[in-house]
Design a protein around this nucleic acid. Structure first.
Lengths: 205, 205, 205, 205
DNA sequence: TGTTAACCGAGACGGTACGTCACGTCTTACA
DNA sequence: TGTAAGACGTGACGTACCGTCTCGGTTAACA
């Protein structure tokens, strides 16, 4: 007994014949991933079978869209991260604090766990690394890079500032601290402000 | 090789009766892990069964010593990292560069991959996190902390320097860049020097 | 080949409007089944998907015509068996030999394999059993029955001969031996003659 | 949570170390097959997964013992057929009737269905054919062959009787009729007697 | 000469089962 | 008691087909 679905809205530009892919399935799958990540503790214990069952979808429907579990997780994480916050442009310091603090929102409570579970695959597969960089990291880095560049142009920051290294000095500590709780001696409270101030101390004109 | 051999040297202080644990088994297991990590590409694809087969050891012998795969990997990584480099003490700048550059040695070529595969477990299990921090991270951080403290005392660094945050500003970028190739626009060449200089620019007295 | 072509010859009496079924599709499907049975070794490993692909036909086009795989196989087998040989009528013995030998023709090399793969379905489904009996078995049995009846009428065979049982005594051994190689001690050479002679020894008037 | 069984009785002569195979598992698996064949209608719809679930056993435990579904079915069928009936030796006719009637016992009600589902595999795989012949068919044929041979020696049957062909003439009709209901015009009642009488009519001295 | 209804290919859909692999536990015989 | 070997129940893997259901596009008989 099969279930004869009522949904058949294409979600991607295919010209060929054949039944188009169900947009409903896409949503259900991503939603199932996020739900399972919320409920269950571990995120690499997330199995495709469980996702399929939760989404009410066949396994093949998942494998038709994503080549493996990690690609699916990347999409889910991208969805979870939501839109990129646009800084107000008041001052370099405030903009950077806003952006860094945005990495620690409540809705990203489990973002660290999920991303940590992605890392093995990012390190293993060059292709996955590219996808993640291009789809998740670079867009956010672009915003921050814009803030720094405007700071240089406005004279607020040193003219010879190494922008790329500075980006790394801002995001690197935030990542290992937020995600991996690397240095337990550093308090969460006011972390973004302290970090930005420390970095800017060596970056101002 | 089927039957157990002439090895029966205890490696831990037990008084009770019965056959003591074979020290040879411990070595063989760790060695097998490192060999498999070198040979195989992926590091989470390392299975206990393969370790046991390679080491010529029963699975139970492994589980008797380590509670799970990640604990075993932590021990293997610790072995792989080798001794902590002791800085010469000439200048804060040179000492920090030495320490950071030590994270990029040739023999740690695969260190990034292996560690990345540990991260999910570190994030998942609080206990594993503690073990890794205490056994691997903290000893190395202690050395770096000493360098910074001496810099403050000698007046080379600002008196009100936030030492813990500075540690994070040094190790965070190094970790994400070395391990995860986070910002491809930053060159590997001279990375340690550039990073230390940038951090120190805001840290000097 | 994407767009449907110039074929549209109805093969069944429909009156309503709408496009008639393509006779070309029917032929292509049966042909594909026979081709796959020839090429591939096993006959229950024959999948509808493979048939559709080989015939250049959609799966729905097959399911529109046959309710399941076995019904399709029965049609294919019937086609494969070809016309029923009409005995010359010279003598009962020669006619029976002719008919039995006709079950072992070269072109039926794979008939045994295919039919054996049908048996599970025949045993399972009463309806399939009827179809196969009526469409394949009974026509051939009718011819043989005619031979025996003429033998009884002509006095060549015993008047009280149990015709139906004798039919079974002729076809039963031939089936299990040809199809299933039941008794390896019985040679293929001259099998039909030996069997007919042995049966007739107890059947002559 | 695993279940730590209490059974560990070897069922096959292995000398090497390691935990011996559980005899309980063997029984449970065969029993599960027979139970499923009894309950469910179709016998090729019997899945290894269902057998494993019914037997309370892992799939791997089944695959460790039998290479595929059909080999398992052969073992199950052999078990189902039970011991070979030993003829009384009164007369050739009565002995043959006894043996043939033994193929139609009540407990073999479903034997036909099961065997029919084996046939595809027997025809497909030469190796499976040999196993079935040697393990199931030949032992029973040996008994019947002995009856015929004794009949020839005692002068009850013709001296030049083709024993092997006669075996086929007895078993062939019985198989196709009992298993496949080949000729619906032949009644089940008294089938064994009628067949034996007909065959013997041409076989007596 | 348009409808109109059934056909066609392609292929996505929710499923089931496949046979393999690794898990972590257990049970042997031997040392 | 420790050890190597290996069977155990469990459960996920990724693949192959199942039979059903859209799709966009023919194709003929009917209006």
């Amino acid at each position: 007994m099969t279930t004869a679905s009522v949904d058949a809205v294409a979600d991607q530009d295919r010209k060929g014949p054949g039944r188009p892919r169900s947009a409903r399935a896409d949503e259900a799958i991503i939603e199932a991933v996020l739900e399972l990540l919320s409920a269950g503790q571990s995120a690499d214990a997330l199995s495709i079978e469980a996702v399929a069952a939760t989404a009410g979808v066949g396994k093949a429907t998942i494998y038709r869209r994503w080549p493996n579990k990690e690609a699916l997780l990347i999409d889910a994480v991208t969805t979870m991260k939501g839109p990129i916050p646009e800084p107000a442009g008041v001052s370099v310091r405030d903009d950077l604090v806003t952006l860094l603090a945005g990495m620690r929102t409540k809705r990203m409570h489990r973002y660290g766990k999920v991303t940590a579970c992605l890392l093995p695959e990012l390190v293993k597969s060059e292709e996955m690394h590219k996808v993640y960089q291009a789809g998740v990291v670079e867009p956010r880095r672009d915003v921050m890079r814009g803030v720094l560049r405007r700071g240089v142009e406005s004279g607020e920051l040193r003219a010879d500032l190494d922008v790329e290294l500075t980006l790394l000095m801002l995001s690197g500590p935030a990542i290992v601290q937020n995600m991996l709780r690397w240095n337990p001696a550093v308090p969460d409270e006011g972390f973004a402000e302290h970090l930005v101030d420390a970095v800017l101390r060596g970056a101002r004109a």
